[in-house]
Design a protein around this nucleic acid. Sequence first.
DNA 1: GTAACAATTCTACAGGTGTGGATTTCAGGA
DNA 2: TCCTGAAATCCACACCTGTAGAATTGTTAC
Lengths: 206, 206
Amino acid sequence: MSPTGGGRGAGRPARRPGRPPGSGNTREAVLAAARAVFAERGFDGASLRVIASAAGVDPGMVRHFFGDKEGLFRAASRIPFDPAEAIPSLLAAGLDGLGERIVRFFVSAWEAGPAPFAAMLRGATSHERSAAMLREFVTHAVVGRVAAALDRPNPALRAALVGSQLVGLGMVRYILRVEPLASVPADTVVAALGPTVQRYLTGDLD
Amino acid sequence: MSPTGGGRGAGRPARRPGRPPGSGNTREAVLAAARAVFAERGFDGASLRVIASAAGVDPGMVRHFFGDKEGLFRAASRIPFDPAEAIPSLLAAGLDGLGERIVRFFVSAWEAGPAPFAAMLRGATSHERSAAMLREFVTHAVVGRVAAALDRPNPALRAALVGSQLVGLGMVRYILRVEPLASVPADTVVAALGPTVQRYLTGDLD
DNA sequence: GTAACAATTCTACAGGTGTGGATTTCAGGA
DNA sequence: TCCTGAAATCCACACCTGTAGAATTGTTAC
């Protein structure tokens, strides 16, 4: 309407561009919102506008900081521990009881910070890029390292079997929330899956 | 441009409405295309237009036959066997070797007609309705019936554990295609997972 | 002081989505 | 012969998506 120089809302005072509020922590707010939304809706289901609004921020910021939806997803899906040091430390105590230790570590990691795992699992089924991320994570970071420490035949197959049980646990307990597995305490899960994982690693497979 | 009565393509002869081609099998063509596309891209990723065009049909037909995207998904995700008769027949031979029989049945069913399973798994991670379908399938059709046949403590938990290993196998072998699990013959899978499932059903869980 | 830079907002675009409805042709029964 | 109903097409609507760029402001370095 009234040509006030460009037509930018000449009525309400509602925030105008610039740099007033929290400078610096905005990036973290976007990341946190992205983790939550990606974890809940997967890659395709999450929209930049929803993430931005959940972070109380303009969608443009996402682009400004992360460039791409892919870039944001990569940044948000960074798992909260370093496999390069976590896995050797699990292996350090030897092959005895390794199954239980792996299951316990997996459950703890998921329950401490579920977002990256859920995001990867949810994304993996429909978005090829995040399927690749999960596959690579399972293959290289986990299977590779674990397989190298086994002095049994078919180490890669053994590690992949472990992966299958852990992925299945994640799906059924945390994503589908099938009862009673979803509500049972962590110790029960460890007791139930530990021997399975142990057998996949060191037992007879025939 | 030229007002020829309504503007319906006044140049090319390209099919006009009516009822010329295959009357009757069109519905099946849409269903087949829907199974394929849902299986490959999940519920959200699949679009009605893509499905229709894969079936060589107008998108309106989908609406005509199935009403809704949900309706199409329901019709396409009907699993190709009846749990009410399949599971009792697995149980009939007794608890001995039940683990191997279940794994073999699951692998055969998946490899005979992968579409419904893949569609459900892919959909379940991002679409709440199909997560509900899968959860209900796992819970009622499988867990319920199997649990009823067990004379051990915690039958429901046992059945859910079986479900977790089977879902994990589906994810890792068929969806993520993690090697070498993805390429290994069915017999190897049966030999590896059979004892796991057997232990979940009848073994000690502590 | 002023110039450069980063943070932030808005508006716009081109494309894809599910759904709704009007329209047309054909087949079969009264 | 006429009429009903099913099969099939097209067009349109709102809406949401990711991306792009322009505009504005504050902060910092010279």
